[in-house]
Simulated assay, not measured.
Amino acid sequence: MKVKILQWHAVASWTWDAQDETCGICRMAFDGCCPDCKFPGDDCPLVWGACNHSFHLHCILKWVNSQNSQASQQQPQCPMCRREWQFKA
């Protein structure tokens, strides 16, 4: 007896490999997306700082820009630990 497959539907899931489950700025889940985005994934990636805290890219960019406009002499700080913000290399 032979079986012929007429259709096949694959299902997959993904998750970010972050220490936390939510963004420290917007408090939205990492498996979702930030308030500025409609769909999670490549359009709303996670970024890590040198301090190992992770945020949605859009959230940390807004944070860094707001820090730069408030204090032009100081470097932006991580919103979680207040260390100098640097993107993890």
Rank of each mutant, 00 (worst) to 15 (best):
S66Y: 02
C34A: 02
K2V: 10
G24K: 03
C37W: 07
W85E: 09
W16K: 08
V47A: 00
W8Y: 12
K38V: 10
V11Y: 15
W8I: 11
C37E: 07
V11L: 11
Q86G: 07
M80E: 12
G32I: 11
W8S: 13
P45F: 06
M28V: 10
G32Q: 03
F55V: 06
T22S: 14
D36E: 14
A89N: 14
H58L: 10
A10T: 12
E84V: 13
Q7V: 09
Q73I: 10
G41E: 01
E84G: 07
G49E: 09
K38S: 11
A71M: 05
A12L: 10
C23P: 01
D20T: 14
S69R: 08
M28R: 15
M28H: 12
A12H: 09
D36W: 08
K88F: 07
Q86F: 14
N68T: 14
S69Y: 02
G32L: 08
H58K: 15
T22K: 13
E21W: 03
A89K: 13
M80L: 11
D20Q: 13
D36N: 15
S13D: 03
W16D: 02
C78G: 05
H56E: 03
L61P: 09
N52H: 05
A12D: 14
L46K: 05
H9I: 11
H58T: 13
N52Y: 03
G41D: 02
W16M: 00
D17Y: 03
Q75V: 09
Q19N: 12
W8R: 15
D42T: 15
T22Q: 10
A12V: 12
K62R: 12
L61N: 13
N68L: 13
R27V: 11
W14S: 07
A29Q: 14
F87K: 11
Q86W: 06
